[in-house]
């Protein structure tokens, strides 16, 4: 029986040696699973075959063989686990290598769109004034002569009409608004003070179109009416606007002007954003750039909407959006705004 035991032990040693040798040669997880079944399989595994012999052995031999089988099993299982880990690591490494990308290829992002510079400028201006408590309102672009002119103290046959050549729909009655100012009247008719509104929108002038003139462009009107506002407030508000829009160190200059619906009226200049006031081509060597027209709401306009000019005071201003955008982005050609050339639009 001893011989038989020794032979069995020797076979187990040989099995272990063979199994380990084979394991060394295995290069894939699939082969590894085959090996696992072959040697450690629960039903047909070679080691299992030895276990089935145990009951046939004598009482003394059984534990010896049993222990030996367990030792071999442990040895093989541990080797298998080690090998499996090695193979997994390698396969992962290889997979990662295979999956290497050219990270410098352009991404799959959808191309971004762009906001039109006029919309962008209106938004910037609106944000500045809404922070000062103004509300953004809109009004008709096809207007009556009354709102566009008469209610604004520009009667029929007034020479101030020359300042704004008009597209007529019904001559003398209905027109394309030449300014956003008619909304001053509409807003005041619809509400009572305090009023703080800005009105962005399209306006139309019957002008030959060239590098600095458009038949359709945009304005932003501002109107503030309450019981305490003064022209100094107008100056302070516009100075603040200029600094936010064109830079912290901007200076604002008021000078006398004439608009039929404001009194006193003022033209507003900022010091030149290019030369800071020393004189250059942009500012025609004056050091100043005209950015908007403004003034205190004319008492006649207040009376027209039923506001008592001894009680209420108001300021109004109007700026050309294209003008502001041209200054801000150094654009020398007004026609670009309606040209819709993507090479231009993509820059905003």
């Amino acid at each position: 029986m001893i011989e038989q035991l020794d032979a069995l032990l020797a076979q187990l040693d040989a099995l272990q040696e063979r199994a380990l040798r084979e394991l060394e040669a295995i290069n894939s997880l699939a082969e590894l699973e085959d090996w696992d079944v072959r040697y450690l399989g629960r039903h047909r595994g070679e080691l299992k075959n030895f276990s089935t012999l145990i009951p046939k052995l004598g009482k003394a031999e059984r534990p010896v063989i049993g222990q030996k089988i367990n030792a071999v099993k442990e040895k093989l299982e541990s080797a298998l686990e080690t090998r499996r880990q090695e193979l997994r690591d390698r396969e992962l490494r290889e997979a990662l290598e295979r999956e290497r990308l050219d990270v410098t290829l352009p991404g799959r992002a959808l191309p971004a769109g762009h906001m039109h510079p006029i919309s962008r400028t209106i938004l910037e201006v609106a944000r500045i004034f809404t922070r000062m408590g103004f509300q953004v309102v809109q009004g008709p672009e096809v207007e009556t002569d009354y709102y566009n002119f008469q209610a604004l103290n520009i009667p029929v046959d007034h020479p101030a009409r020359d300042m704004q050549d008009t597209f007529w729909v019904v001559p003398g009655e209905i027109l394309l608004r030449t300014q956003t100012s008619p909304m001053q009247i509409r807003v005041m008719q619809a509400t009572r003070p305090p009023v703080r509104v800005i009105v962005p929108g399209k306006v139309f002038r019957h002008e030959a179109i060239d590098a600095s003139h458009e038949a359709m462009f945009h304005q932003i009107e501002g109107l503030l009416v309450d019981e305490r506002c003064t022209m100094a407030d107008l100056k302070g508000s516009l100075a603040r606007f200029a600094r936010e829009m064109f830079g912290e160190d901007r200076r604002v200059r008021f000078r006398g002007s004439y608009f039929p619906f404001t009194e006193p009226s003022a033209e507003v200049d900022i010091d030149c954003i290019l030369c800071k006031g020393s004189g250059c081509r942009l500012c025609k060597y004056s050091g100043w750039l005209e950015i908007l027209g403004s003034g205190m709401v004319h008492p006649r306009v207040l009376r027209e909407v039923g506001y008592d000019p001894r009680k209420y005071r108001g300021y109004a201003f109007g700026m050309g959006v294209e003008r502001i955008a041209m200054l801000k982005y150094a654009i020398g050609e007004i026609r670009l705004f309606s040209g819709n050339d993507l090479r231009f639009l993509r820059q905003f």
């Binding site: 000062m132 408590g133 509300q135 509400t191 305090p194 009023v195 703080r196 509104v197 503030l224 309450d226 019981e227 305490r228 506002c229 003064t230 022209m231 100094a232 407030d233 100056k235 302070g236 508000s237 100075a239 603040r240 604002v252 200059r253 008021f254 000078r255 006398g256 006193p264 003022a266």
Partner: peptide
């Protein structure tokens, strides 16, 4: 009067009235 005294003499203040 403002034209004679000068628009540049205008102070710059912030509107203090109530908001709509």
């Amino acid at each position: 009067v403002l034209r004679m005294i000068g628009y540049d003499q205008l102070p710059a203040t912030v509107p203090e009235g109530p908001l709509p």
